[in-house]
Design a protein around this nucleic acid. Structure first.
Lengths: 155, 155
DNA sequence: GGGGGATGGTTTGATGTCAAATCAACGGCC
DNA sequence: GGCCGTTGATTTGACATCAAACCATCCCCC
C-alpha cells in the first residue's frame, strides 16, 4: 500500500479503512439503486420506508430520521406528494407542524417494494459470513455517532 | 431490534449491517466535511488528492478513480479551474483527451491540506482498535467490488 | 395582551450527481 | 480519401443536498 502517500502506521491503517468503508458504501448504494423502480430515488425510498414502518411523521421528524436537512425534506416530500405517494396535513393544534402520511397508493407501493429491497440487500450481504456481518455492524456503530435509528430497527 | 419490520434472521442481520454501514459512512463524511476549508467540497478534495498523488490525469481517468460520471467530472473540474487550482490541457496527439493537472497554487494548496485531513481521519478512526480497523477494511473490501483504488493506495 | 425569542417549514443559491442527448475527434474499412 | 462507428468531453434536465435567509406561528414573560 501507498507508494504514493507516505504516512505513519496509524495513518496508513486509518486511511485504508476509510477508503474501503467509503467504497463499500458507494458500491452497496449504487447496487441498491439498480433495484429501485425507475424514477424512485434512494431518499424517496427511505422516506416511504420510514412512514411505512413508523406511521405518519412530522416533516421535522422525518428529516431527523433520515439525517437530512429540513430544506431537503421539503423538496423530497414535494416530489413524493406530486407523485401521489404521500399527503401533507397541517396540524390543527400547532399550525407550524406538517404531518406527512402515506396515501393508500403510497402504502401499497412501499408495502410491495420493501420486501424486494430487503431481499436484495440480504443477497448483497450474503458475501459476508454472519460473523462478519455482526462485526461490521458493531464496528460501524462505533464509528457512526448513533444518532437516530432506522425505522425497521426502532423500538 | 425490529418491532416494526419482521424479517427472517438473515434479513435482520443484513439490514442491520446495511444501515449501520450507511450511518457510519454518512457520519465520517460529514465530520470530514467540517475539516475541509470553507468552500471546498469532498469531491473537489478527492480530485485534488488524486492529482497530487498520481500526477496529471485525463478527465476520464479521474472520473474512473473517483467513481463518478463523466458529466459530473466536467463540472467539478470546471469549478477547480475557476478557482485556479487545476489546469486543462488538450492532448496534442488526440484532441479528444483533456489532461488535468494541478497549478502551482493547487499543488501548494493540496500539499498543505492533505496531511491535515489525513491526521483528522486518523484521529476519527482512533475510536477503533487497530484490529477493528483491519477487520473493517477487510470486510468492506469484500462488500465493495474493488474497482479502482484511491490515489495514495495505488501502486 | 403585546413584544420578542424560539421553532417548523419554505425558498434561494451553490454544488454534486446521474442518465441521456449532443458534440468533437479519431480510426478502421472499403 | 471519405463514411461510420467508437470514444472523450460537454450539455441538459431532474433530483439531492446544504447553509443561510426568510416566513409563519406559537408561546413565554413582563
Amino acid at each position: 500500500m501507498g507508494t504514493h502517500h507516505q504516512g505513519t502506521k496509524p495513518e496508513v491503517l486509518a486511511l485504508d479503512a476509510y477508503i474501503k468503508l467509503m467504497r463499500a458504501a458507494d458500491s452497496v448504494t449504487s447496487r441498491a439503486h439498480l433495484v429501485l423502480p425507475e424514477g424512485l430515488t434512494l431518499t424517496q425510498f427511505a422516506a416511504l420506508e420510514a412512514l411505512f414502518h413508523l406511521g405518519p411523521l412530522y416533516q421535522s421528524e422525518l428529516a431527523t430520521k433520515l439525517l437530512k436537512s429540513g430544506g431537503n425534506l421539503t423538496l423530497v416530500v414535494d416530489n413524493l406528494e406530486r407523485d401521489g405517494l404521500v399527503l401533507r396535513t397541517r396540524d390543527a393544534a400547532d399550525r407550524r407542524f406538517i404531518k406527512v402520511d402515506l396515501t393508500p397508493k403510497g402504502r401499497r407501493f412501499i408495502g410491495a417494494l420493501f420486501p424486494k429491497i430487503a431481499a436484495s440487500l440480504t443477497h448483497e450481504f450474503a458475501v459476508l459470513s454472519p460473523r462478519d456481518q455482526l462485526a461490521l455492524a458493531r464496528i460501524c456503530k462505533r464509528l457512526g455517532v448513533g444518532r437516530s435509528r432506522p425505522a425497521y430497527a426502532t423500538a
